[in-house]
Computed example of a mutant assay.
Amino acid sequence: MASQSPEDEDYMDAFMDKFKTEKYEGGFNEDTWEEEIEKIPMFMKKVPTEIDPEKNPDLACLQAMIYDEDRPPEDQAKTYKDDGNYYFKEKKYKQAVASYTEGLKKKCSNQEVNAILYTNRAAAQFHLGNHRSALNDVIVARKLKPDHLKAFVRGVLCHIELKNFSEAVQWCDNGLKIDPKEKQLLELRTKADKLKRAKERDARKARLKEKKQLSEKEVLLRAIKDKKIKIFNPHCGSSDEDEEDRELKHLSELSLAGLDSEIAVSSTVFLNENGNLVWPVLILYPEYGQTDFISAFNEESRFIDHLHVMFGQELPPWDIDHKYLPTELELYFEDVEREEMYQINAGHTLLQVLQHKRYFVRNGTPSFIVLVRSSPFLKQYLTGRNVHIVK
């Protein structure tokens, strides 16, 4: 090793003596040194998403070297794979998808690298909730690398999320042919098979319930027809083949005009244990714009009995003149097509009225109008209308 000359020794002494009187200005600040060292590319823990060459020329230079388009496609694809893995680890799944996609665009000849890019992109898509896209990626990954077990695992997870439980079991079985002891596939197969059986059981129950409901509806419709009750059908010009379905539909369409009641929402006509039809019935009071809803009006019950329940003990608050007394009320139904009114006897049963040749049940709910006898409103309401009395 060459010895230093006296001149060199004099220079170093002078250089070191300089620090005794002058403070070095290029060092780190003792309070912010950690932040400052993070700005040096070699020590960075996180790389900025966007790099400004003017503010950080060193990092921009390194980036240009890393993403040099002149490098082999496989090297470029691996770089983007590493970027995607970094974003995935940071739970930045959109950026991870973008990086893996860029890697695939390089179309390198290494099929294993491509398979990993597809599988990793599938994982990122899965975390974003894009299960169909994730499944498409692992399908391609399996074609590129048939023994890629991670592709099988992620494919099974996608099928489970998409509720394709039979396919999930099949994917597990295919993966286990490659490695019969693969723990994750064994666990997923147990889960998928359990979900598959539950889905099949629920489907069987749904079919049986639907069959039972259809049978009950057919019995109900037959009873209605046997009792000569007419259901209004607005689609009278449609084919006879669908007539029964249409009638059933209109029976279930309860008219809820002016109502806000959970009881009303759940009420439909049914057959009781004695074979009697029990109807939801709407009572209208046009004088005050009010309604009453009787959720279960037995066809054998008389109107007067319900009127006594509604007005016999306590009058409604809207009856400010206290004139809605059971014995002073008149009941009507309207023939909409003919624009005619029919007065019915309060002593009649619901069935007797429903069997009238001009009564049609609309929207699954028989409705009737209640007016006060001899009141000015009744006279005004019926003026200009043809009124018939039902005997």
Rank of each mutant, 00 (worst) to 15 (best):
K150C: 05
L188W: 00
C172W: 06
L214S: 10
D193M: 13
G129N: 04
A123L: 12
L220Y: 04
R189T: 01
K92P: 09
L188F: 00
D173N: 07
A198K: 15
A198S: 13
K145V: 05
D202G: 01
F126L: 10
G175F: 08
K163A: 13
N85C: 12
N174R: 14
K91V: 06
K181H: 10
E182P: 03
T190G: 12
L176C: 08
E90F: 06
E167I: 05
R121I: 03
A134Q: 11
N130R: 14
I139R: 12
C158R: 12
L157Q: 15
E112P: 06
L144V: 09
K211Y: 04
K107E: 15
K177V: 03
R154Y: 12
F165P: 02
F88R: 05
T190D: 14
K92D: 11
C158P: 14
K143H: 14
F152N: 04
W171H: 13
L117R: 00
K217F: 02
H159L: 13
K145A: 12
A192I: 04
V153E: 09
K89F: 08
K212A: 12
Q111C: 08
A115N: 11
D202T: 11
E102K: 15
G155V: 02
R132C: 06
A123P: 00
K183V: 13
S215A: 14
S99C: 13
L128Q: 14
K194H: 11
S99N: 07
L128I: 02
R204N: 08
Q170L: 10
K107Y: 07
G103I: 01
